[in-house]
Design a protein around this nucleic acid. Structure first.
Lengths: 112, 112
DNA sequence: CCTATATTCAACACATCAGTTGATCAAGGC
DNA sequence: GCCTTGATCAACTGATGTGTTGAATATAGG
């Protein structure tokens, strides 16, 4: 599996903001328009609109058209890409740790 | 599972940089000192030192002491936290998609 | 001790980000 | 056609990030 560095930059940066993570959380329960997404937040609609652009540019959400509304949908494939990037290194490290543990266990046995 | 927003900010921001991701990749193969980590990069040692501080503050790595060296170790637990945050929403969305697919399938059958 | 090595700190320049306000565009409803 | 609604664009501000250079700290080793 190979990853586009610039795409990873955009995706992780997009997740590095509590407002955008909250938008992700909301969208995981179903599509929503910009106004609906903005409603719970104490910041301007324009600020939310820009957060949504960031999420879209990162590939984390997609947008459709419904008259004058632009509903947002979460893109689970993009999220899956991120977990697989992380897991690639997490699992390698965990395997290495287990190998070390096994060696320590062997040494301990030989001490006895 | 509940998550510390500020910690997620730091962790995702830490991953939103190609140099820091490369450091993670290197550390997944085993511990390394600051000098060793800096070697492949065309930027100053001080810049790498700061990247390492960012990773440490994000909890993604830990550091030990070996004389005048400060070896870095990847912290797989922190990575696991991130994947579980992402998966929480990814899986919800995928389940919802499958439910919609099932409904569409039913409608299609009834049309026939 | 004295010097070399490993690492960090401090101060600066430059770019990018997150928010604001005010204006603009596009689709709907009457 | 005209006004309202949904959403975006543009320009500006303050904060934060990423790199640099130069100085400082701390341990190692002769």
């Amino acid at each position: 599996m190979t990853f586009d560095e610039a795409a990873l930059d955009r995706a992780f940066l997009a997740l590095a903001d509590p407002v955008r993570r909250a938008l992700i959380a909301r969208l995981s329960r179903g599509p929503a328009t910009v106004n609906e997404l903005a409603e719970p937040f104490p910041i301007t609609l324009q600020a939310i609109s820009r957060h949504i652009s960031v999420l879209e540019a990162a590939g984390l959400i997609t947008r459709t058209r419904d008259g004058q509304r632009r509903p947002c949908h979460l893109a689970p494939n993009a999220l899956e890409q991120l977990t697989s990037w992380i897991d690639q290194y997490r699992l390698t490290t965990e395997r290495r740790f287990r190998a070390i543990d096994a060696v320590l266990e062997t040494v301990k046995e030989q001490d006895q």
